[in-house]
Amino acid sequence: MAKKVAYMGMLTALAFVFSYIEFLLPINLGVPGIKLGLANLVVIVALYLLDVRWACSLSVVRILLVGLTFGNPASMIYSLAGGILSLVIMIIAKKGKLFSVMGVSILGGVFHNIGQIVVAVFVVETTSLLYYLPVLILSGTIAGVLIGILSAILIRHLKKAIQAEGTKCE
């Protein structure tokens, strides 16, 4: 338990830092909301190495932290919508065992964008925002692939470390 809490703290901090980096270096392609989603990398790692509950709380804590520090309330609600939808989809995808980390990551990236845009449609009250959907599906897919590659590498290496320590502790 204590070990998990320690990992949890580290991962949360890492996710927070990743969010900050993306905040400092935004990708501007003319469409709002396009980003790599480095923080999702950490969430996926938590999903695979810790468990569902830890991944959930990590995701929510990160979004709240970001929203309260360098975000604003409006951006926070978008992040929450994207983050929660993306996480739920990833959990289902992982449980279903149909996909590898790569597939889970892609789904996470795509649905993060979908969640955000759905909220935006409700808030701004214009369906014309759905014009962005194809762009955001594509950018979500690309980001998902990149994050998927990184996640697979990270999980492979960290798994050994965690399991090695785990056996020692037990």
């Binding site: 709380s57 929510v60 709240l64 929203g67 604003n72 309330p73 409006a74 926070m76 609600i77 929450l80 808030v123």
Partner: peptide, 21 residues
Amino acid sequence: QAGILVAAVLVLAGVVCIQYY
């Protein structure tokens, strides 16, 4: 209990956001 707390925070945050918007 923690879950309920988080849910409450989320609802509050949502209300704040909507008003801000």
